[in-house]
Nucleic acid binder design. Structure first.
Lengths: 128, 128
DNA sequence: TCTTGCCTTGACGTGCGCGTCAAGGTTTAG
DNA sequence: CTAAACCTTGACGCGCACGTCAAGGCAAGA
């Protein structure tokens, strides 16, 4: 199938697919006129990328999963590199949860009274 | 004091202060040679902005607080507009906490087994 | 006088995941 | 033959809070 159909079936846009290719996540055969040609396997790859993005992983982070699928594994997260990404993301999420709890309590306290004391530390705020 | 000293005392940069001014958060007197001149009150404003940013509020969101301080109130969050910002942010934080909990459980499940079922909904992911 | 260290405005760069033209080539339907 | 609907590459735009030059003015010490 060509890029338009792949985009439609995956519920995304051709622009996104071309961007994935530019990032080394997707490859395509080319027909004689230069059009990209995809198979069912590529649809599977795109779906994997989408579900990982839904969890908050960056495109960079999805690379090990894609490589794992390309290597012939049935699921993209059965390879060590993929699982390492999961672990790193989990740590990130935990840190973010803790941070947001602090912020939440700060906001509640401020809404209750004017208590200008417990300003939370200006740590990092990367909640993807 | 001039912009360099204000930046140093507030633990920020001159670039940030000029940016605040461009966003309408900060005003400055000008000396005869065109230099910005600040007072202690401005240091107070900058500190307010910083602590609000630490909670994850955007510069836009800090405007009501700054206006509140400028209006003569002792604390920036004693005005209705400020408290509304707090409430909105609290709702955001709550949504984000819920979302991150889902993601966390997804990651834990994936790390435990390969359980390709419960992919979390690709809702919004705005965790500031 | 010259250097040093302030200050000024203006404009472009950053990260991320694309959206949105622009300017063209290809294939198919009418 | 022509229009519609695909496809190609390339380049700029976006949001946000500044960082980082660039090119110059101002003030004070050696």
């Amino acid at each position: 199938m060509r890029i338009g159909e792949l985009a439609k079936r995956a519920g995304t846009t051709t622009r996104a697919l071309r961007f994935y290719e530019s990032q080394g996540l997707l490859e395509a055969q080319r027909t004689s006129n230069g059009y990209r040609e995809y198979g069912e396997h590529d649809l599977r790859l795109v779906r994997e990328i989408q579900s990982l993005q839904a969890v908050g992983l960056s495109l960079e982070d999805t690379k090990p999963f894609v490589a794992c699928l390309r290597a012939g594994h049935e699921s993209g997260d059965s390879c060590p590199d993929s699982r390492e990404v999961y672990r790193r993301k989990l740590a990130e999420v935990d840190a973010c949860l803790e941070r947001l709890q602090t912020v939440r309590e700060f906001l509640l306290a401020r809404l209750a009274f004017q208590d200008p004391c417990l300003v939370p530390e200006p740590k990092e705020f990367l909640c993807s």
